[in-house]
Amino acid sequence: MEKVKLRILYSDLRPELEIIEKELEQAVQSSSHLLNDASLHLLQAGGKRIRPVFVLLAAKFGDYDAATVRNVAVPLELIHMASLVHDDVIDDSEVRRGEPTVKAQWNNRVAMYTGDFMFARALEHAAAVRNPVLHEVLAKAIIEVCRGEIIQIEDKSQLDQNLRSYLRRIKRKTALLISSSCELGGLAAGADPATVAHLRRFGYFIGMSFQIIDDVLDFTASDAELGKPAGSDFLQGNITLPILFARDDEKLQALLQRTLGEELTDRQRLDVVEEVRESAGIRRSKELSDRYLQKALRELAALPDIPSKKALRDLAFFIGKRKF
């Protein structure tokens, strides 16, 4: 059902998204068969293409030029994909979206060079854009993604970390790239500064909501729905919002301390997942995600009333309420 909803949301953008998909395939081509295979393996594993969609919809608030907008959308998706490859190495992840990760299919070295290659291709593709402001925003987005990855390493297995640390991490890891997608779409189309500012803030708030829901789904969705074992973040030592809230329960805190960083059987993993799923951590996480969603909708309300505004609203609700 969720995938059907997403296809409906994307229906008006399908022709442009199909072109972007082809450009992504072309962008990861190289003289190395190994790089080609590894890059295409990740690309063809699928994905929601959320960032290109935000670029396309944001660009509708200005003077929309398809070629210019694609030159922004493609690099942003390449940056996102590069961060996923690196993330899987850091977290030692074997599965993503139901398929072996690049590091699992090949090895860590191939995965790291594949991610670096995608970052480089993103910069090469963006060179077609002549606006220096766009390059500045894109460069800052790359820097923040890298900082987010480092912060995640520093915070790993720190059960006593605070809420501020978590929010800082997901801001850099997820929200700022979505915020940049909306901002760059508006800038690429020459939208007025006030509109671009609303788009940027909308993207930031919806990005925060998006990541919190992702962290909730790691406990509430099934292995099959996630395409990886439920509770993977916890197994990898990543302390997410449901855990931060759930640890307030003394009984659950003892369980988390006892199992964090340990090799767990499937039964033990599912027991932890079930305990967190039944805790107040899930409800409180959804409540915070919804607060970010409402902030995003307030930014959206200030934008001109054009068809893309409704599309952004529908997409925001999908992100904030999705089940997997």
Rank of each mutant, 00 (worst) to 15 (best):
E2W: 12
E2F: 11
V4P: 00
V4F: 12
K5W: 08
L6T: 05
I8F: 14
S11K: 12
S11G: 02
I20W: 01
E21M: 06
E21P: 01
E23Y: 11
E25C: 08
V28E: 12
H41C: 04
Q44E: 15
K48Q: 04
R49S: 01
I50Y: 00
P52H: 10
P52R: 06
V53Q: 04
F54K: 02
F54G: 00
A59F: 02
V69E: 14
A73L: 06
P75C: 06
L78A: 06
H80D: 01
S83P: 03
D87Y: 07
V89C: 06
V89W: 09
D91W: 02
D92Y: 09
S93M: 08
S93F: 01
S93T: 08
R96V: 07
G98K: 11
A104V: 11
N107G: 05
N107I: 13
V110K: 10
A111K: 05
M112E: 14
G115K: 03
D116N: 14
D116H: 10
R121S: 01
A122H: 04
H125K: 07
H125I: 02
A127W: 05
A128K: 12
P132R: 04
V133H: 08
L134I: 13
L134E: 04
H135I: 06
E136G: 07
E136S: 11
L138M: 11
A141T: 15
A141Y: 05
I142N: 03
E144D: 14
V145L: 10
R147D: 14
G148E: 12
N162C: 07
L163Y: 14
R164I: 12
S165M: 12
R169N: 10
K171M: 08
I178Y: 00
I178N: 00
S180E: 12
C182T: 15
E183C: 09
E183F: 08
G185F: 02
G190E: 15
A191N: 10
D192V: 13
P193F: 13
A194L: 15
A194M: 13
T195N: 05
T195L: 04
H198S: 10
F202Q: 02
Y204R: 09
G207P: 00
S209N: 03
D214L: 01
L217K: 04
E225Q: 15
L226K: 08
L226Q: 09
P229R: 14
F234V: 10
L235D: 10
Q236C: 11
T240K: 09
R247V: 13
D248F: 14
D249W: 13
D249V: 10
D249S: 14
L252C: 09
L252I: 15
L252D: 11
Q253V: 11
A254G: 13
L255I: 15
R258I: 13
T259Y: 13
R267G: 00
L270W: 05
D271Q: 12
D271N: 06
V276F: 03
A280F: 04
I282T: 04
S285N: 10
K286D: 03
K295Q: 11
A301C: 03
L303R: 03
D305R: 07
S308D: 00
K310Y: 06
R313C: 05
D314A: 02
L315C: 00
F317A: 01
F317H: 14
K321G: 01
K321H: 12
K321A: 04
R322D: 02
K323L: 09
